[in-house]
Amino acid sequence: MMDIRKLTKEETPPWELLLLADPSRAVVEEYLKSGNVYVGEKSGKAIGVYVLKETKKVVVEIMNVAVHEDFQGKGYGKQLIAHAINEASKRGYAQVEIGTGNSSIHQLKLYQQCGFRMTGIDFDYFTRNYDEPIVENGLLCRDMIRLCYTFED
């Protein structure tokens, strides 16, 4: 179990973790301007992070979610996603969206296990928006898979 808290605007975001999920510091800096950063800590050390950003009046998006490599595969990612869903629910949002690369096999599995459903594909998103090719799990990351969690009425 880890403690999850909202980072204050005065605190420095955990860049090492944020860049695990998104290799472009410029892209991350852009969504940090209007997003809220939540840090998962264990014994006072940041081991996980996610960013929640309102995209529409009733929709919030998880822009970044990452767990330190030493702690992956132990349920911390699932705990971060559950926390994000709970935060969105408390704030009255109708949906939580998330996007990930076509090559992000483990993340696609995790998000679906957490109740997200695939809603679309943004073809060539990563080749359009990132200067360097991203290769993950032996696959070129080209397309963004969009998923959505909808709260039941």
Score class of each variant (00 low, 15 high):
E16I: 03
I81Q: 03
R142E: 12
C148L: 06
D124M: 13
M1R: 13
G35P: 09
N137L: 08
L19M: 02
K53N: 13
I134R: 05
G99C: 00
R128D: 08
V51M: 06
E11V: 07
A46P: 15
G120E: 10
K42V: 14
T55H: 03
Y125S: 09
W15P: 02
Q112T: 12
M118C: 00
K6Y: 01
F71W: 12
H106Q: 15
V27N: 15
C141Y: 03
L108D: 09
A21W: 04
A94T: 09
L139Q: 01
K42F: 11
R146T: 02
T100N: 07
G101I: 05
K74G: 10
I105R: 14
Y76R: 00
I121E: 00
H106S: 15
I47K: 07
Y149D: 06
L110P: 01
G40F: 02
E10H: 11
Q112I: 11
G77S: 03
G73S: 01
D143K: 00
Y111C: 02
H106I: 15
W15C: 06
E11I: 07
L147F: 09
E54Q: 11
S34Q: 14
T127Q: 11
E41L: 10
E132C: 06
K9Y: 06
C141L: 09
F116Q: 10
E69L: 07
I85L: 13
G44Y: 06
E10I: 10
C141K: 05
I62L: 12
L17C: 12
K56P: 04
V59K: 12
S89F: 14
L108K: 13
V49R: 05
I4M: 01
C141I: 02
M2L: 08
R128A: 10
G101F: 02
N86M: 10
V67M: 10
P14M: 06
L20Q: 06
P133Q: 05
L7E: 08
E54M: 13
V96M: 04
E97A: 13
I105E: 04
E10P: 13
K74C: 10
Y76D: 10
V39D: 00
F151P: 03
K90V: 01
Q107V: 14
A21V: 05
R91L: 10
E30Q: 14
V59D: 14
P14R: 00
K109C: 14
L19K: 10
G101C: 12
C141W: 11
V39H: 08
F126Y: 04
Y76C: 11
L7C: 12
F151K: 01
S89L: 14
I105C: 05
Q107C: 09
Y149V: 00
S104N: 11
P13R: 04
G138I: 03
V37I: 10
S104K: 04
N137C: 09
V58Q: 14
N129V: 07
S104L: 04
E61M: 01
S43P: 09
V59C: 13
F116K: 06
I4A: 01
C114P: 03
T119F: 08
R25Q: 03
R128M: 11
K78A: 09
E132K: 07
A88N: 00
L19H: 05
Y31S: 13
I121R: 05
G40L: 07
Q79K: 13
L32R: 01
L108I: 05
S89H: 02
